[in-house]
Amino acid sequence: MFLINCPYCGERDQQEFKAGGEAHIERPKQPTELSDDEWAEYLFMRKNIKGVQFERWNHAHGCRKWFNMVRDTSNDEIKAIYKMGEKPPSQ
C-alpha cells in the first residue's frame, strides 16, 4: 500500500488514489487527419515496463486532481511526483 505525496494535499494512503495508466500520451489535436494505424497507436498502445515507468494518477477520493508519477514497477519505489503540464524529471 503506497504512501503517495499528492502535490496538492501531501502524503495520503494509496486507497484514496486511482491509477490512470501511462503518462505523456497527448490526445491528437486533429484526430481526423490520422490514419487508422496512427489513431490505433494513440488509442490502444501502452507500455508495460518492468522498471521506471511514467504514470498518471488521480487523487480520486481527495482533491480530485490528476498528476504524474515516476514509479519503478519492479519495486514500487516512487521516484518523482509532478503536476500535470510540468516537465518530467530527467532520469
Binding site: 486511482k18 490512470g20 497527448e26 490526445r27 498518471r56 488521480n58 480520486a60 480530485r64 486532481k65 490528476w66 500535470m84 503540464g85
Partner: peptide, 13 residues
C-alpha cells in the same frame, strides 16, 4: 464526473 475531470485537467486545461 471522473472522466470529464480527466479531460479538463489533462487534455484541455
Amino acid at each position: 464526473l471522473g472522466k470529464l475531470e480527466d479531460y479538463l485537467q489533462t487534455e484541455w486545461p
